[in-house]
C-alpha cells in the first residue's frame, strides 16, 4: 500500500488480442475511456443549447474553445485553424489524463512514457507527413537556418536534424517526468502519515496531520502542474505544427 510505485502498475481487466498483440483492456484503458466519456458528455451538453447568452457550462466550453484558439493563433497564426481539432483533442486528452490521475485510487495514464511518447509521435508524424506533402523536399530546408555560411553547414545540419528528431522525446519525457514525480511525491507523503500511525500508535495520529497537511498543499500544486503541463504540451505542439505552414527560407 505504501509503495509509491504501485500506483503506476497496470492491471488487465479484459484480455484482448489483435494480430498477436496484447491489447487487453486495462485500468489505464479504463481511465482513458472515462476521460473520453467525461469530456464528450460535458462538452456535448455544453454545446448543445447554443444559447446566445451562455450558461455556466456553455461558458466553460466556450472559454476552453477560446483558450485553445488563442494558443493556436499566437503560436501558428491564422492558418493554424485547420489544426484546431487536433490541438483541442490533444489538450483535452493530456489535461484529463493529468487531472483525473489526482483522484485517489485512479490511474494516471499520462504518467506512462509510452502514452506520452505516442501523443508526441502523433504530432511529430503529423508535422512530418503534412510538411512533406505541402512543401515537398523544400520542407527539409527547415534544417538550414537562413543566412547560414556554407562552411557552417556540416556543423549546423546535424545539430538541427538532431534537435528535430529529439522533439518528441523531450515533449514526452517532460510530461511523463512531471506526472511521475508529482504522484510519487503525493504517495510518499501519504505514506509518511500511515507510517507514523504504524510506528507511534496513538500519538502517531497527531503527528500524521503534518504530512497530511503538506499533501493538501501538494494536491493544489499538482493541479497547477496538471494544467501547466497540458498547456506546455499543447503550446509546444503548436510551435512544431507551425513548421508545416511557414518555412521562412
Amino acid at each position: 500500500m505504501s509503495n509509491p510505485i504501485h500506483q503506476f502498475e497496470i492491471t488487465p481487466y479484459i484480455p484482448l488480442h489483435i494480430g498477436g498483440l496484447d491489447v487487453s483492456f486495462t485500468n489505464s484503458s479504463l481511465w482513458m475511456m472515462i476521460g473520453v466519456f467525461l469530456s464528450v458528455s460535458v462538452l456535448s451538453l455544453a454545446s448543445k443549447k447554443r444559447a446566445l447568452v451562455p450558461g455556466r457550462l456553455q461558458m466553460f466550453a466556450e472559454t476552453l474553445y477560446e483558450f485553445i484558439a488563442n494558443a493556436i493563433r499566437d503560436n501558428i497564426g491564422s492558418e493554424g485553424r485547420r489544426y484546431f481539432p487536433l490541438v483541442f483533442t490533444l489538450f483535452v486528452v493530456v489535461m484529463l489524463g493529468n487531472s483525473l490521475g489526482l483522484i485517489p485510487y485512479s490511474f494516471t495514464y499520462t504518467s506512462h512514457l509510452i502514452v506520452t511518447l505516442a501523443l508526441a509521435l502523433i504530432i511529430f508524424i503529423t508535422v512530418l507527413v503534412i510538411g512533406i506533402a505541402r512543401h515537398g523536399f523544400h520542407f527539409f530546408s527547415l534544417f538550414l537556418p537562413p543566412g547560414l555560411p556554407v562552411w557552417l553547414i556540416p556543423l549546423i545540419l546535424p545539430i538541427e536534424i538532431l534537435s528535430f528528431i529529439v522533439r518528441p522525446i523531450t515533449l514526452s519525457v517532460r510530461l511523463f517526468a512531471n506526472m511521475i514525480a508529482g504522484h510519487i511525491m503525493l504517495k510518499v507523503f501519504a505514506g509518511f502519515s500511515v507510517g507514523m500511525v504504524a510506528a507511534m500508535g496513538g500519538w502517531g495520529y497527531l503527528a500524521a496531520i503534518f504530512p497530511m497537511f503538506f499533501n493538501t498543499v501538494l494536491i493544489g500544486f499538482e493541479l497547477l502542474i496538471a494544467f501547466l503541463q497540458a498547456y506546455v504540451f499543447t503550446v509546444l505542439s503548436c510551435i512544431y505544427l507551425k513548421d508545416t505552414i511557414h518555412i521562412d527560407h
Partner: peptide, 23 residues
C-alpha cells in the same frame, strides 16, 4: 518501474489511439 515494462506497451498505445481518434 511499471512504465518500462513492455508487456502493456501495445495495449497502452492501442487504447490511447482509440480514445484519441474517438475524441
Amino acid at each position: 518501474l511499471p512504465q518500462f515494462d513492455p508487456t502493456w506497451f501495445a495495449s497502452q498505445v492501442f487504447w490511447l489511439l482509440v480514445s484519441f481518434l474517438l475524441l
